[in-house]
Design a protein around this nucleic acid. Structure first.
Lengths: 160, 160
DNA sequence: CACAATTCAATTGTGCACAACTCAATGGCG
DNA sequence: CGCCATTGAGTTGTGCACAATTGAATTGTG
């Protein structure tokens, strides 16, 4: 098999801790900055992610939305209800397939797009990020995610 | 000021979406893999992070724990109660400063350390990660977090 | 056509993140 | 010493993540 390198398990645990912390911390730091910027728009961070998908695709069933965001109905259903209560989206049972629910932007939801264009500009300004570096970080994270997803599949108990 | 590059705001929003998604997705993918591995130990991912700090420091007040993890008492108090209910830690009011609560490992909590050494090894094995690349990713994430934190300070409404 | 398996959204229950708040202990300062 | 601002933990309320379950609609198969 793999020629296991001579790494002290305790060091590995320490490194593991550092990775976990870093990712955890980065996510929450991201969240915190967005929280402030999104307050003006009346959106939470996950709601912002949902709206971005809708701004791009206009209208789509909950299922597709979930695929884009890696979220299931348990998370999306209440979130979408709140967006509907805020007047940003409407939810309608599909007439073609009554199991499915179509989510579409209201005019108000559409209009929010204009104001949302400000957000990434302010993020970029405020953090002084280099665009290329961000792209690079993104691709690394994506590779990480892919590797983890594949690992998760093999790791699932009882899947052999 | 900064010589603003000619970037279409819509492209920026798209890139923003990608970064947000990637970070969000990576965190959740990480979480998912750990969830499976930690099930054996009876820990959630955040509980694992808390235990790692305790394994390293042995005993410390809730306040210090929160500083290590960037978490406040609102998150830690109930989490620590669950760890106490599981018999892994004990919480005792400090006699020196009765505002503060010391968190220390029980023998059972100490013993779990041995089994926890397995976790990062299995993560490393299962994902086939290169240690150097992980270290590199970690430093990038840390720089991101630092930049975001500084940005958050300047961005806080009413701080000028 | 009828029935079983699948698909999709919603609900329930647990746990985490965080803001806002309470309350007691502490520490300074006049 | 007495008062008051600060500190530390805990509580409450809102929202997200996810597993497990429910129930209705649809699809596949005999």
């Amino acid at each position: 098999m793999t020629p296991t390198p001579a790494v002290d398990p305790a060091d590995l645990l320490r490194l593991d801790k550092q990775i976990c912390f870093s990712l955890h911390a980065a996510t929450r730091a991201f969240n915190g900055v967005y929280r402030v910027l999104l307050k003006d728009l009346g959106l939470t961070y996950p709601q912002y992610l949902v709206m971005m998908v809708l701004w791009e695709h206009g209208e789509l069933p909950v299922k597709r939305l979930g695929e884009h965001l890696r979220l299931d109905s348990g998370t999306l259903s209440p979130l979408l209800k709140r967006l509907e209560a805020a007047g940003l989206v409407r939810r309608e049972r599909s007439t073609r397939d009554e199991r499915s629910v179509e989510v579409r932007l209201t005019e108000e939801g559409q209009a929010l797009h204009e104001r949302a264009l400000e957000v990434p500009r302010r993020i970029a300004t405020v953090t002084g990020f280099d665009l290329d570096e961000l792209r690079d970080l993104r691709s690394r994270l994506d590779r990480l995610t892919t590797a983890l997803d594949e690992a998760a599949l093999e790791e699932t108990p009882g899947c052999r």
